[in-house]
């Protein structure tokens, strides 16, 4: 086997995926360019902005800093996996209602960081939310309406926000 190309199998937003990828490709590159899901963004390419955040086995990670090869065997969730056919995920609805979106470039990453947090801790306090989203930079909102969105989602979270 030529290790320059790697075969990986993983679950993406609930569906099994099987792909041949370049050995050193980032998870972000594979998700955007091979799979064609554009929700995860490249804001800096070096893990400084969080716009590429996805969830791997329930944990928020910067997909620009993760080798796609390391997705092998993992359960991966991107922003596209949040909403269902019935409509927005409660977390997304909360961002809409509380004006947590301005330009929207940081939004998918923020949603994924928050989603992972709520899995780990369904009722985080302000400091815990801050700790979880400090790696997601936003230049538009000053974060107030983002906190308001998340805190409202937490208030109404009876567990479904992490589903």
């Amino acid at each position: 086997m030529d290790p320059k190309t790697v075969h990986i199998e993983f679950t993406l937003n609930g569906s099994p995926r099987s792909l041949e990828i370049p050995g050193a490709a980032s998870a972000l590159w594979v998700i955007r360019n091979l799979i064609g899901l554009k929700g995860a963004k490249e804001g800096c390419g070096i893990g400084e902005c969080g716009a590429c955040t996805i969830e791997v086995d329930g944990k928020a990670v910067n997909s620009c800093l993760m080798l796609a090869a390391q997705l092998d065997g993992a359960d991966v969730l991107t922003v596209e996996g949040l909403a269902s056919e019935d409509g927005l995920h409660p977390l997304q609805s909360s961002f809409l209602e509380h004006h947590g979106v301005q330009c929207g470039f940081c939004t998918p990453g923020l949603l994924m960081s928050t989603h992972a947090l709520l899995k780990e801790n369904p009722h985080p306090d302000h400091a815990q939310v801050s700790k979880a989203i400090a790696g997601n930079l936003c230049r538009c909102t000053g974060y107030r309406q983002i906190f308001a969105s998340i805190e409202d989602a937490v208030k109404h979270n009876s567990g479904e926000a992490a589903q």
Binding site: Q92, L96, F105, T107, P108
Partner: peptide
């Protein structure tokens, strides 16, 4: 609700 927010929340291209 701000116009365009839903697309951005969904990660639409």
């Amino acid at each position: 609700p701000r116009t365009g927010s839903v697309d951005r929340l969904r990660g639409a291209p």
